[in-house]
Design a protein around this nucleic acid. Structure first.
Lengths: 325, 325
DNA sequence: CTGAAAGCGCTTACAG
DNA sequence: CTGAAAGCGCTTACAG
């Protein structure tokens, strides 16, 4: 920067003003000279130095419970996109469902002076929001905020989504509809489970949030002839497992078993058969989370997750002509 | 830091030495006082200041062609893990297959003074490696390096993988085996396509790297009765689309159409039916890429991608008992 | 083993 | 409209 200033016959202050288009005006002739000098010297501003002085890095931290889960992965992509739209870089880390790892990530990101932290489906036990607050940094939760944590949350309207799913299956003639939940009733899955219990009779099933477990469970139910005619599944990860298990057991979907999944990430459009889902509005959730992070304005009205009918509910699978995801 | 030094009755130099365990020794008593003072004041070192002075940020940049692709997403996860294992944070960005966006990301990451850049399946046209070199920063390509780019590449043995896939399908009695390639023969897909052409007779099929296109193509082939009995598919993304298209068209897999995919990311274990694949060794690739990035030592011997037989090739789908992914 | 001080590359009051 | 200079929070020669 000093070199550029020297070559342009001016001061580093002026160089800064032209590189940043402000905050003070620069005479056209001076600006030209600076730009020419910068180009000649291939000058690239050092964002680290800028960050140290300006106390803003232009970097946000994104903490993921588990990017192997296609729903979280899709959400992560949208958040990275939303951040990039606002000229902010994304530091990512997978906590792998471990509170300890989650806490370590938060500490490291905070030490790296991120401008904010977005936490997708935080674990209980490690209060990232509190760490951030102690650091004077904003944090926002997406999808799920542990009961111990404070700070804003960007939620979807999970109860309404479940009601839509149940109503739709009922329209296909199912009177009892089972529900596949996670191992506990924490977070949005609990909301979904309770909304299902209020909406329809049926059996509560549980397994971990993994394809493997959901597939095994489905095979086991098929083997013991205890499969329901219709099943609402708490997460995409499990729904994909259910389809895999049904396929291995020779169970026809949707003929023998109708399925609706409640995350509805884009990947679900290309399962076999194509999953009917309630689709969480990932783009809107990401934009809202990032806006809240950058402006500090809170808005926790739930976002609508519309029903998307595809093949697994029993609707005819409409041929799609080259439709993008 | 000055506060800590004052409270411990020493200098900032000593505080630095104890926070970093070096490079100079500190008397035990002094160290204790510093640690106590740091704890009392909840002192957290500022990595940005450290980075400015030490000319190392402890951050690497990861540029992805497209995280929607499950293979790239899985590779990204492994790279983030490998970097974290070496105490390095990960800045990510999706280029969305656009050379312009890829270049912009590289510039931004370089401006953020990353210690290195890893590029997964770079686009031609934007020479990230050259940008990095001009900046005095290391870059390594994973999976694919455009012909215009220099620098190290971490490749899998794609030709051997294709031969294994073809041999296996031949063992199931297929004499002609078609190949679904991408729109062009760039990169590893070209290697795969040529290895297939050398190994077996069959028809060359092409479509974009999207589930939608692969599904549509499969439906179209089914409608015109031009489906092969066996198909090797260049990428997971397309293979998932083929399965979706087959399901929509009522084509039995593997009975009427046997399929093997050549990426073999973990997601392929839970398609319906489960995909037989050659599995790129993602963990080994990520570790090697990160080692090369951090040490500068190159090693471009191809990594083996073993055949994993599941259901789509015609092998019996073995029941798995709760096996993790 | 320790301290005083320079300096990393910027931004931004302060002064003109 | 512009310049000289302080200072962001560290690390690391330099000197003892």
């Amino acid at each position: 920067m000093a070199d550029v200033a020297r070559r342009a016959g001016t001061s580093t202050a002026v160089v800064s003003y032209v590189m940043n288009d402000g905050p003070r005006p620069v005479a056209v002739a001076t600006r030209e000279r600076v730009l020419a000098a910068a180009a000649d010297l291939r000058y690239r501003p050092n964002r680290i130095a800028r960050a140290l002085r300006a106390r803003r890095t232009g970097v946000a931290g994104l903490i993921l419970a588990d990017a192997s889960n296609p729903y979280f992965a899709a959400l992560a992509r949208e958040i990275e996109r939303a951040l990039a739209d606002r000229d902010t870089l994304t530091l990512v880390g997978n906590a792998g469902h471990s509170p300890a790892r989650q806490k370590r990530l938060a500490e490291r990101f905070l030490a790296a002076q991120v401008d904010g932290l977005v936490v997708v489906s935080a674990e209980g036990g490690a209060d990232v929001a509190a760490e951030a607050e102690a650091h004077g940094t904003r944090a926002v939760h997406v999808h799920h905020r542990p009961r111990t944590a404070h700070g804003p949350l960007v939620p979807a309207d999970n109860a309404a989504a479940v009601r839509a799913a149940v109503d739709h299956l009922r329209g296909h003639g199912h009177e009892r509809i089972d529900f596949l939940s996670g191992p506990t009733d924490a977070g949005p899955v609990g909301v979904r489970r309770r909304a299902w219990a209020r909406a329809t009779p049926g059996t509560l099933l549980r397994c971990t949030y993994s394809r493997a477990d959901a597939a095994d469970l489905t095979e086991r139910l098929a083997a013991t002839d205890t499969l329901p005619s219709a099943l609402v599944v708490a997460t995409d990860e499990q729904a994909i497992g259910v389809l895999a298990g049904a396929c291995r057991a020779g169970v026809a979907v949707p003929g023998r078993l109708a399925v609706v999944s409640l995350d509805g990430a884009p990947d679900t459009a290309y399962t076999a058969p194509a999953l009917t889902v309630t689709a969480q509005p990932l783009t809107a959730m990401a934009d809202r989370a990032v806006d809240q992070l950058l402006t500090g304005e809170a808005d926790d009205t739930p976002l609508t997750a519309p029903l998307i009918t595809r093949a697994t509910c029993g609707c005819p699978d409409r041929p799609r002509s080259g439709s993008p995801r």
